[in-house]
Lab assay of single mutants.
Amino acid sequence: KELVLVLYDYQEKSPREVTVKKGDILTLLNSTNKDWWKVEVDDSQGFIPAAYLKKL
Rank of each mutant, 00 (worst) to 15 (best):
K1T: 10
K1A: 10
K1S: 09
E2V: 13
E2Q: 14
L3F: 14
L3Y: 14
L3T: 07
V4W: 05
V4T: 02
V4E: 00
V4S: 01
V4D: 01
L5V: 11
L5Y: 09
L5P: 00
L5C: 09
L5S: 03
L5G: 01
V6G: 00
V6S: 01
V6I: 03
V6P: 00
V6T: 04
L7C: 06
L7N: 01
L7G: 00
L7Q: 03
L7S: 02
L7F: 02
Y8S: 09
Y8W: 12
Y8Q: 14
Y8N: 09
Y8L: 10
Y8A: 13
Y8E: 12
Y8I: 08
D9G: 05
D9I: 04
D9M: 03
D9R: 03
D9Q: 03
D9P: 05
Y10S: 01
Y10L: 01
Y10N: 01
Y10D: 01
Q11H: 13
Q11A: 12
Q11V: 14
Q11G: 07
Q11Y: 14
Q11R: 11
E12Y: 11
E12W: 15
E12M: 15
E12C: 15
K13V: 08
K13T: 12
S14C: 12
S14G: 13
S14Q: 07
S14M: 08
S14Y: 10
S14A: 09
S14H: 11
P15H: 10
P15M: 08
P15A: 12
P15R: 07
P15G: 11
P15L: 08
R16W: 15
R16G: 15
R16M: 13
R16D: 12
R16H: 13
R16I: 12
R16P: 06
E17H: 08
E17N: 10
E17T: 09
E17M: 08
V18N: 03
V18D: 01
V18A: 06
T19A: 07
T19R: 08
T19E: 04
T19W: 06
T19C: 08
T19P: 02
V20F: 06
V20P: 00
V20W: 05
K21Y: 10
K21D: 02
K21M: 07
K21C: 11
K22A: 13
K22C: 07
K22L: 04
K22Y: 05
K22Q: 10
G23H: 04
G23R: 02
G23N: 05
G23I: 02
G23Y: 04
G23Q: 01
G23L: 02
D24P: 01
D24Q: 15
D24S: 11
D24I: 06
D24N: 08
D24G: 05
D24W: 15
I25F: 04
I25L: 06
I25H: 03
I25K: 05
I25R: 04
I25D: 00
L26T: 01
L26F: 03
L26Y: 04
T27Y: 11
T27R: 13
T27N: 09
T27C: 11
L28S: 01
L28P: 00
L28Y: 01
L28C: 08
L28H: 00
L28I: 04
L28K: 00
L28Q: 01
L28G: 00
L29I: 14
L29M: 06
L29C: 05
L29V: 11
L29D: 00
N30Q: 11
N30W: 06
N30D: 15
N30I: 06
S31W: 10
S31G: 11
S31K: 06
S31R: 06
S31V: 07
T32L: 08
T32C: 13
T32E: 14
T32S: 14
T32A: 11
T32F: 10
T32M: 10
N33Q: 09
N33F: 07
N33T: 06
N33V: 04
K34I: 09
K34E: 10
K34S: 11
K34P: 14
D35A: 10
D35E: 11
D35M: 12
W36C: 10
W36P: 00
W36R: 04
W36E: 04
W36K: 04
W37K: 00
W37R: 01
W37I: 02
K38P: 01
K38A: 09
K38I: 15
K38H: 11
K38Y: 15
K38M: 15
K38T: 08
V39S: 00
V39K: 00
V39D: 00
V39F: 02
V39I: 08
E40R: 10
E40V: 10
E40S: 10
E40D: 06
E40W: 08
E40G: 09
E40M: 12
E40K: 12
V41Y: 09
V41E: 01
D42V: 09
D42K: 13
D42C: 13
D42Q: 13
D42A: 14
D43G: 15
D43T: 11
D43R: 10
S44N: 13
S44I: 15
S44G: 14
S44F: 14
Q45L: 07
Q45D: 09
Q45K: 09
Q45P: 09
Q45N: 09
Q45C: 14
Q45V: 14
Q45H: 11
G46M: 15
G46P: 09
G46D: 03
G46T: 13
F47M: 08
F47H: 05
F47P: 03
F47V: 06
F47W: 15
F47G: 02
I48D: 03
P49H: 04
P49V: 04
P49F: 05
P49R: 05
P49A: 03
A50Y: 03
A50W: 03
A51F: 12
A51S: 14
A51T: 13
Y52E: 02
Y52A: 10
Y52F: 12
Y52R: 03
Y52H: 09
L53S: 03
L53E: 02
L53P: 02
K54G: 05
K54Q: 14
K54W: 10
K55R: 12
K55E: 06
K55T: 06
K55Q: 07
K55D: 04
K55S: 06
L56A: 04
L56R: 01
L56W: 07
